[in-house]
Write a protein that binds this DNA or RNA. Structure first.
Length: 428
RNA sequence: GGAGGCGUCGCCUAGUCCGGUCUAUGGCGCCCGCCUGCUAAGCGGGUUUGGGGCUACAACCCCAUCGAGGGUUCAAAUCCCUCCGCCUCCGCCA
């Protein structure tokens, strides 16, 4: 949720922010009206309530007939207070709905426009030239089958489309990636976390995933629980309703969790392989810090993402995501997109967002600044999303015979294995 | 899943049976001041959070806040209901 004071004091700035995302500014006027109505309702209720409290004290002191007379008078007052209180509750709800419908105000630096209006910030590494090497690259589906690493057929049999089993070196690769990510994070001072992947509505809503993104979220039937699409959700809610010691900031966590996504509205996209799946595992960085520090921290998160991709020896580019593609919570977002040889294009492997105060206002996460409480900033960044990392590794480092070279940094995590070699199919 | 106990403004705690004197007690911690070669002790004061009014975003006034939400009542920390969490025991289980 955005700062209500910004909405009141500078609504034009919020209107402009809506336009930058390609959204209507109607919500701004709705929210302003709701704010006025709410404050009027508060004033009306509190005035009567104060009267009632004062009258109640007289009742307590009075005796006999005098008391009976006072009682009759005060009963009417009580009824009115009750009426004003429920009117107030309605006005609060309307205000809450209105303010929460407004996405975070995008950073000035974020490009205007939608999904295709991103700006490329840099290219790192060069895509491999398979033509020059004299062989046609296999896609990760074929490589996964040759290596006995990815079993899509049985994934579909057991769980349906967009599911898979990682087997043999595939399973080893996941554990290696997770361990390498966790080691890097720990070395950088992060606290390692294994986070729950089922959360209550508060956590989901607080992180902004029950808005436009709600269609993509799995809900547990008969329970008030959701499956998270990222451990950003449990990690943001981790410190909800807390006032964090300013000296403890930044609080840096690296959380492992499975991630579940319905992928509603992506029918026909990435139907092959494990690029787009309903479930994958991920190591996510999550940081609580001050708003002032958040911009520099965002750059650091990007730095750690790049460090990880560099260790995997991948070619990638970094993009500055356009305002319209930021989602509800983010103020700015950088995606790292790795070159996928058989697709001939860059695909998102990691992503880091600065959500400034947007999530912390919803989740009541504050710190103390000069004796006053102030919302903290929350940031998140992918260290590694297993499935896409595997796709990029297999396709990028494959060799003509179907084997795959293991990046040097990853070798220690695979027991020193330097090459993944084809083994044929499992179980015939 | 069953039985019982508990949940008070950083921590501990009084209050709950019997509704109004609770503007929530006391201690610890912390902050400010006094005193003081220094420190400690002592003395005095302050110390939940959110919101509204008025404003300089101060001071001040007001409202809410005793796990959460309802209810009863003129009036609820206190009585009733539902839910949540923690603890103990039983059952089940990785």
């Amino acid at each position: 949720m955005i700062d209500p004071r910004l909405l009141r004091d500078d609504p034009d700035r919020v209107r402009a922010a809506q336009a930058k995302r390609g959204l209507s500014a109607d919500v701004v006027d709705t929210a302003l009206a709701a704010d006025r109505a709410r404050r009027d309702a508060i004033a009306a209720f509190e005035a009567r309530r104060a009267e009632q409290k004062a009258a109640g004290k007289d009742v307590a002191k009075a005796q006999g007939e005098e008391k009976q007379a006072l009682l009759a008078k005060v009963k009417d007052l009580a009824a009115e207070v009750k009426r004003l209180e429920s009117a107030l509750a309605e006005a609060e709800q309307a205000w809450d709905d209105a303010i929460k419908a407004i996405p975070n105000v995008a950073a000035d630096e974020a490009p205007a426009g939608g999904e295709d209006d991103f700006v490329v910030l840099e290219h790192v590494g060069k895509p491999r030239d398979f033509e020059a090497e004299g062989f046609a690259p296999r896609d990760h589906v074929e490589l996964g089958r040759l290596l006995g690493a990815i079993d899509l057929e049985r994934g579909a049999k057991v769980s349906g489309s967009r599911f898979y089993f990682l087997t043999g070196v595939g399973a080893q690769l996941e554990l290696a990636l997770v361990n390498m990510a966790m080691d890097q994070a720990r070395a950088a001072g992060f606290t390692q976390v294994i986070a729950p992947s089922l959360v209550k509505p508060r956590a989901m809503d607080g992180t902004g995933f029950l808005g436009q993104a709600a269609d993509d979220v799995y809900r547990i039937e008969g329970e008030d629980l959701y499956l998270v699409g990222t451990s950003e959700v449990p990690m943001a809610a981790y410190h909800s309703d807390e006032i964090l010691d300013a000296a403890s900031l930044p609080l840096r966590y690296a959380a492992f969790s499975p991630c579940f996504r319905k992928e509603a509205g992506s029918h026909g996209k990435d139907t092959k392989g494990i690029i787009r799946v309903h479930w994958f595992d991920k190591v996510e960085m999550f940081v609580y810090t001050t708003v002032e520090e958040s911009y520099a921290e965002h750059e650091r998160l990007l730095g750690w993402e790049k460090e990880f991709l560099d260790k995997l020896e991948l070619a990638y580019r970094v993009i500055d995501v356009a305002a319209g593609d930021l989602g509800l919570s983010a103020q700015r977002k950088f995606d790292c997109e790795a070159w996928i040889p058989t697709q001939g294009r860059y695909r998102e492997l990691t992503s880091t967002s600065n959500c400034t105060e947007f999530q912390s206002r919803r989740l009541d996460i504050r710190t103390r600044v000069d004796g006053q409480t102030a919302p903290v900033a929350t940031l998140n960044g992918t260290l590694t999303a297993i499935t896409r990392a595997i796709v990029a590794i297999l396709e990028t480092h494959q060799q003509a015979d179907g084997s795959v070279r293991v990046p040097k940094a990853l070798q220690p995590y695979l027991g020193g294995l330097e090459v993944l070699t084809p083994i044929g199919s499992i179980g015939g």
